[in-house]
């Protein structure tokens, strides 16, 4: 009995090992081949986030800029979220990107946040617009979703509506007396108040930005590169002139946040890189 079992075991073991190997090889080859075919039928996209002032790369911590209100200022921090990026094709179709993680944090002090390579497989073709939500969209802006810095440090207090700052631009400027002063351009959920000044409601100040991208072509098997450029000075200049002397913090000042959000629609531009 022992000998028979041993003999059979050796035979079966050989057959089994060989068959298993051939089967595994066929299976993995087919999967790889299919995956390759699938990937080569689509393209991908990556975004870079660039900050400029008056057409030049932003120079931080240096008192060299002036706004339309005549304030001399320097920029110390630029931190913001974008969410729900959509590509719009000429035919009118749209592709919503990164559905599973539809927001991205940008921080001039964290180089890895300045680019975002999306995993989406995109149908090749011409796309003539890119749109996104500036800040976190209403659906995405939930308190406590980020546990770790740097994103967690963008929290927006629950008392003021919760979620996260859409943006922090921290600025030093010279006030009317020529003294150094601080201005925080912080955007997030706004508040409505009753006659006693008590908060009685919230306003989602996030807004949609649509940028022309006529030369954006997604090609099979290639990654298209797009730069999203923030023209920082435009937050303060048009259509609303923001005089830093008139504000303090603007986080619980819906009127100020609303004026700055209106300017924000003109702040971004886009370049497709070849």
């Amino acid at each position: 009995m022992d000998k028979t079992i041993k003999k059979h075991m050796i035979t079966y073991s050989k057959i089994f090992n060989r068959s298993a190997f051939v089967f595994a090889w066929l299976l993995s080859s087919s999967v790889l081949l299919l995956a390759q075919n699938n990937n080569s039928n689509y393209g991908t996209i990556s975004f870079s986030f660039i900050q400029i002032v008056n057409g030049q790369s932003a120079l931080y911590d240096t008192l060299i800029y002036s706004n339309n209100a005549g304030n001399r200022y320097e920029i110390n921090k630029v931190q913001y979220f974008v969410s729900e990026i959509i590509l719009h094709s000429i035919s009118g179709d749209s592709v919503r990107l990164s559905r599973s993680a539809p927001c991205h944090y940008v921080d001039k002090d964290y180089p890895k946040t300045l680019s975002w390579s999306l995993p989406d497989k995109i149908l090749p073709g011409k796309y003539n617009y890119v749109s996104f939500i500036f800040g976190l969209s209403k659906d995405q802006n939930k308190s406590y979703r980020f546990r770790n810095p740097p994103e967690s440090i963008m929290f927006w207090p629950d008392i003021l509506g919760g979620g996260y700052h859409y943006m922090k631009i921290n600025i030093k400027y010279l006030n009317v007396n020529g003294e150094i002063s601080n201005f925080n351009c912080h955007l997030g959920i706004g508040q409505t108040k009753d006659e006693h000044g008590k908060i009685d409601g919230f306003i989602h100040n996030c807004f949609s930005v649509t940028l022309p991208a006529s030369s954006l072509i997604i090609r099979k098997g290639q990654t298209s590169k797009v730069e999203i450029i923030m023209n920082i000075e435009k937050w303060f200049d048009s259509p609303n002139i923001i005089d830093f002397n008139n504000y303090h913090g603007i986080m619980d000042n819906q009127k100020a946040m609303s004026a700055i959000c209106a300017n924000g629609k003109n702040v971004f531009s886009l370049i497709v890189k070849e």
Binding site: S152, I153, F155, P157, D158, I159, L160, D252, N253
Partner: peptide
Amino acid sequence: LYLFTTERGDCFHCHGSPAL
């Protein structure tokens, strides 16, 4: 807590909040 986490006290930007 209200003063701490609003612009009146403005402590939260550096010292955190329940979310930090």
